[in-house]
Nucleic acid binder design. Structure first.
Lengths: 166, 166
DNA sequence: TTAAATTAAATTGTAAACAATATAAATATT
DNA sequence: AATATTTATATTGTTTACAATTTAATTTAA
């Protein structure tokens, strides 16, 4: 008990005075660390994707298509949180690289369907090794990684319900 | 026991077959959710920062300066994970808005020191309300938020040690 | 059935970010 | 001291991303 008291006192001494401005400190800002981590991880992807002529954005488009092929630009945008202003040029590039094919819907001429080509489909086999390499280079504790995923997905749910709502 | 067996069987039926490709699913990719969350949160900052002529990047530069004023471009870049290609034009803009002042070091003419102006310093008072509003709009469980911060900072440490190392 | 409103994708213009390079100052080497 | 190397910032060119607008097709309302 005595000991505990003593310990507490020590802590109190060392503890920094909590200011009303603490909320403005970079280290306390979730968005800043999300922003830095995503940028830096995407930078780490670069050397792994470069050999295939892919950028991170091209890569996540393929990830989406491997889960569900033959999807409209709109649905792709909903899945990836990207709009046509970003997707249209990106998809043209992926088509030029022969990963995908874009075709106007016959029933509704406004929609454009995105389909994987043979090359695009088969690239999945090669791509399996990309996340493996990334996990290594991040030296991330898998348990914390999973917890983070859960929290981030909760957050993402609030985004889609407010803005891109259905 | 019998019951449990039965339950297990049911679960096994419902459970999706785990494939070697699961690692490629968007929902399992940490980077993708970091990327989406940071983008979407930054989007939420926009209406809060617009009235002051600030972008998110300008805002985090001010956050850094409120913690430590009179800092070189290099140190600012280290803190914010940004390079001079991004910072130089950004800092010129902040100077034009009279938030900061840029002055060449007298001892070492290569360095540029960034100092808050009166307006820049006083804006801190106003800015206090920005993160408060953000936290609300994110409806984030504070406990999960803190856990996430810890994990993200661990990750950030690995970035700086490898690339920008000192 | 025509006019108005909505929708999907494309386009245009702009800002952020980075890679690569340039410039100029400081430091190290010979 | 003169040259080479390193360092800090600036510049240039390119890509990603988004907001805002346009175009064309579809749906709704009159």
């Amino acid at each position: 008990m005595k000991n505990q008291n003593h310990a507490n006192k020590k802590v109190t001494e060392n503890v920094q005075k909590i200011s009303e401005y603490d909320i403005l400190k970079l280290d306390n800002q979730l968005c800043f660390s999300l922003y830095v981590c995503s940028k830096e991880i995407i930078r780490k992807y670069k050397p792994l994707l470069d050999p295939y002529g892919l950028t991170y954005t091209g890569y996540i488009i393929l990830l989406a298509l491997w889960e569900k092929d033959d999807i409209t630009v709109k649905d792709l945008g909903r899945k990836l949180y990207l709009d046509s202003g970003t997707l249209t040029p990106m998809l043209k590039k992926l088509e030029a690289l022969d990963f995908i094919k874009r075709t106007r819907g016959s029933k509704d001429e406004r929609t454009v369907y995105i389909k994987l080509t043979k090359k695009g489909y088969e690239f999945k086999e090669e791509a399996k090794h990309i996340p493996e390499k990334m996990v290594c280079s991040l030296e991330l504790d898998p348990k914390h990684g999973k917890e983070m995923l859960v929290s981030l997905h909760k957050m993402m749910d609030t985004f889609s319900s407010t803005e891109l709502g259905e």
